[in-house]
């Protein structure tokens, strides 16, 4: 259970990016967060694992108050939160196996990490997961030799290696072609079921969000203005979430055709 209450993030002295946000994610649901660029989706995700430091408010994961932690405690908590990135964020010059094992870095003794002496059970788990997502035969390849979809699979396995209690995905399909992007979304949904893992996905593609998630959270200017099942996301709700975004730019966002063109 992830519980966020009254979360505020402000960079410098500017207007806050997140304005007292409340959100609860119980159980193992797949939640999509949608909203125009600048709505604060990415900041919200990064506040959860504290890659971005919240200005105020609390975030609680399965009874652990994340916002109180620092140093070693924070690192130990981060092990429990897997993250998947838009740009995959792999280390290009390392092999797929090393990238995958880097998900265990929070657990490994330093000498094992440096010498690449990974424990047997970690290696077995890595092969299992890689086979599950279809990249096991790439274990010895360098990460930059893989295609975009394959690289994102490495990113997913890296996050799963952490044995996470929650998965955060920041626009995981934005750098992929439509077909691969559907495969990754499908994979995330399946993995969520298999590992009973809550997954929080920032996503631009509303059609995919409706198809592959159980719940959609709409953000606008640092606030949650929509929170319901995908079926409830109608034209009016879309218009409100994306108000001010020209219709042409919304083309890719959903299969809903705007009734009237709104120009900023």
């Amino acid at each position: 259970m992830l519980k966020i209450s009254q979360l505020v993030k402000r960079y410098g002295n500017g207007a806050p990016v997140l304005k007292g946000l409340d959100l609860e994610v119980p159980g193992d649901s797949v939640v999509a967060i949608i909203g125009a660029s600048g709505a604060g989706k990415s900041t919200l995700l990064r506040c959860i694992n504290r890659l971005v430091e919240p200005s105020s408010g609390t975030i609680e994961l399965n009874g652990l108050m994340l916002t109180d932690l620092k140093g070693a405690g924070l690192r130990a908590a981060r092990r429990r939160i897997g993250m998947i990135f838009q740009g995959f964020n792999l280390v290009d010059r390392l092999t797929v196996m090393e990238n995958v094992q880097s998900g265990r870095l929070g657990y490994l003794p330093t000498w094992r990490a440096v010498m690449r002496r990974y424990p047997k059970e970690d290696i077995r788990r890595a092969y299992e997961l890689m086979e599950r997502v279809g990249i096991a035969h790439y274990a010895n390849k360098r990460a930059d030799e893989l295609s975009g979809g394959e690289r994102q699979r490495v990113g997913v396995v890296r996050a799963l290696m952490q044995e996470p209690e929650i998965l955060l995905a920041d626009e995981p399909t934005a750098s992929l072609d439509p077909k691969t992007s559907e495969q990754i979304m499908e994979l995330l949904r399946a993995l969520s079921r298999e590992f009973s893992l809550p997954v929080l996905i920032n996503i631009h593609n509303v059609a995919e969000a409706k198809l592959y998630t159980d719940r959609i959270v709409g953000m606008r200017y640092g606030r949650i203005i929509f929170d319901a099942a995908p079926a409830a996301l109608d034209q009016a709700a879309m218009d409100e979430i994306y108000a001010g975004v020209p219709a042409e730019e919304r083309g890719e966002m959903g299969n809903v055709t705007p009734l009237r063109a709104k120009n900023a």
């Binding site: 981060r78 092990r79 429990r80 998900g103």
Partner: peptide, 8 residues
């Protein structure tokens, strides 16, 4: 990404 895994 690696900071997010809790690595030192």
């Amino acid at each position: 990404a690696l900071e997010a895994t809790g690595a030192s």
